[in-house]
């Protein structure tokens, strides 16, 4: 076996990776972050979210005739909207991240670098997740303005942070998984968005009876949404509804595990929709 000296590594750039092979994900994440935040995409989403939250806050805070819901409900609504937007947008970013590269014919060049497949996926995953903390920070002033009484702000921010993080992790992993197997970007975006809407829809439905409870407990979106509603509006303590965090947590862990196992087997061509 050949032993490399520092001189060999300095002379041969090809060998430098042996010294720093673990950093591929960081380089990819950095590039993806620049692509999101230094292009029009990221800032446009932030501005759009700000405008939406501004409108809701304005209606709730300044116009009592139009303000038909309680301010705690409004805080809950803002937190839920911010969370749903972050989940949806992050999901679409990862749904594009592999199938989009396939379609733009840039994937092959990436796959012939020594960066392991899992690290390629990790870099893209982290960049997509970055949308969530940014949108949460955007929501802070609006929730602050609308807070009423002690503890609402903290309940809302902490609840949104926990539930949103679990949901974003799960859905970003879902997007990655779909993208890895999709032969076309359109298919990937459509499938990922369909699953998102399918799981989001029950949060807007009146769920009752054993079936409603089952959906509430097992659907990560309804479970997370109900947890947040109870924490902000009903002023439940955290310990009262911990069971509602099981579905989002299981969703996050399971989807991440499956997505990264699949990422290790990332192929040039997708399996479906070629």
């Amino acid at each position: 076996m050949t032993t490399l000296t520092p001189e060999d590594v300095r002379r041969e750039p090809a060998l430098q990776l042996a010294a720093g092979a673990g950093g591929g994900w960081l380089v990819i994440a950095g590039q993806e972050l620049r692509d999101i935040w230094l292009s029009a995409r990221g800032p446009a989403i932030v501005i759009g979210t700000s405008l939406l939250l501004s409108l809701l806050t304005y209606l709730a805070a300044s116009n009592e005739e139009l303000n038909i819901i309680d301010q705690r409900d409004t805080v809950n609504l803002l937190a839920q909207i911010t969370m749903a937007l972050a989940v949806g947008v992050s999901l679409l970013f990862t749904a594009d991240c592999v199938s989009g590269e396939r379609e733009r014919e840039t994937l092959e060049s990436l796959l012939v670098t020594p960066v392991p497949r899992g690290q390629v996926a990790l870099g893209k995953y982290l960049a997509a997740v970055s949308m969530w903390p940014v949108l949460l920070i955007v929501a802070i002033p609006y929730i602050w303005v609308l807070r009423e009484g002690e503890g609402v702000f903290a309940d809302a921010m902490l609840g949104a942070l926990v539930v949103g993080t679990l949901l974003v992790i799960g859905f970003v992993s879902l997007g990655l998984l779909v993208s890895i197997f999709s032969g076309s970007n359109r298919l990937s975006l459509a499938v990922a968005f369909f699953i998102f809407v399918l799981l989001l829809a029950p949060t807007q439905l009146p769920l009752g009876g054993w079936f409603g409870d089952l959906i509430t407990q097992t659907n990560p979106m309804t479970a997370g949404s109900t947890f947040l509603h109870r924490a902000i509006v009903k002023e439940h303590g955290w310990g009262e509804d911990l069971d509602l965090l099981i579905a989002p947590a299981v969703w996050a862990i399971a989807m991440t595990g499956v997505a990264f196992i699949a990422a290790g087997r990332l192929r040039l061509q997708g399996s479906f929709g070629r």
Binding site: A14, L17, A21, D35, E105, S109, L110, T113
Partner: peptide, 22 residues
């Protein structure tokens, strides 16, 4: 081979050099 059209040639080559551990 596809190229990220928004990147400059310099950024593109630098990016790949970094992926090779430089």
């Amino acid at each position: 081979a596809g190229y990220p059209l928004h990147q400059s040639g310099e950024e593109f080559v630098q990016y790949f050099a970094r992926l090779f551990g430089q």
